[in-house]
Design a protein around this nucleic acid. Structure first.
Lengths: 142, 142
DNA sequence: GTATTTTTGAAAACGATTTTCATTGTTGGA
DNA sequence: TCCAACAATGAAAATCGTTTTCAAAAATAC
């Protein structure tokens, strides 16, 4: 249940090793409340750990996604963002093109309609992606 | 109203020129029923027009998007797909991870709920993206 | 037609990400 | 505890999709 442990068990299961770098990256990742791009994340990490390599961060974030404690996102700016997956409900995003703010939301009614649509087309859904792009209250001038 | 004319007017308005290549690419694009990646599209084009350049195709597809007769899509495989925008309703996608099939759908109820969610967060939506990933009937073995 | 300006295609550049490779670190036994 | 085996690291090079550069060619304006 604790996310750190989930990742450690994942490593063991896969015959991978627990390293100082992976622990550092895991800590930073779990304490990250925003949606930084991989580069932003790397730069943040580097302030405290100047000797950590770019490639290691990329590799480790991919491991997080494989393990299931992270999910890769892509909001159209050509950069991947990894987001900590919670045990809670799936959520979607509101993205402000003015200030770049990223808000999360969830709506069961939308999820149910999605399932219905998929069923109607004979699909079995494994995951979905819903993003609303526009202007937040501030940027829209309200 | 005719899409070809829309693009020609767009060119004139922008002080751009109508060229043989742009006409060829426009024709191919308008006759394309599927969702090819830019590379697939280029390869298809090339069969009939071996002398056309990669860069020209990229540039022209971007012009289509700017003009409004096309919309860029990205289904997570790192490649951009341009899709002909119809004058009809906006639509979303079902993507089969088995065979790569891409189905289109639309659902007003989902659209309405999206607007509601945005409003609740003070957002003004400009566009949205909804993609359902999973297995189509065939690939799911039904 | 001719001048002006844009477009083209090939190749180089680009930015994000991945891979390579020699070195270092980790781990599960002797 | 030490060692052998193997995985992980970091720096640099490679890769992939896309964009830009640049000289030559084509399109429009005059």
């Amino acid at each position: 249940m604790p996310r750190k442990q989930l990742f450690r068990e994942f490593l063991t299961r896969k015959g991978l090793k627990s390293t100082r770098q992976r622990e550092i990256i895991l800590d930073e990742f779990l304490h990250c409340a925003t949606h930084p791009s991989t580069e932003e994340f790397y730069l943040g990490l580097r302030e405290k750990n100047p000797r950590i390599g770019y490639a290691t961060v990329y590799r480790t974030l991919k491991l997080f996604a494989e393990c299931g404690i992270a999910a890769a996102r892509n909001f159209g700016d050509g950069q991947t963002r990894y987001e900590s997956t919670t045990t809670e409900e799936h959520h979607d995003h509101l993205i402000c093109r003015g200030c770049g703010a990223i808000l999360e939301f969830e709506d069961d009614r939308i999820e149910r309609l999605q399932s219905e649509v998929a069923r109607k087309h004979g699909f079995v859904i494994e995951k979905h992606r819903l993003e609303l792009y526009g202007l937040c209250g501030n940027c829209a001038g309200n």
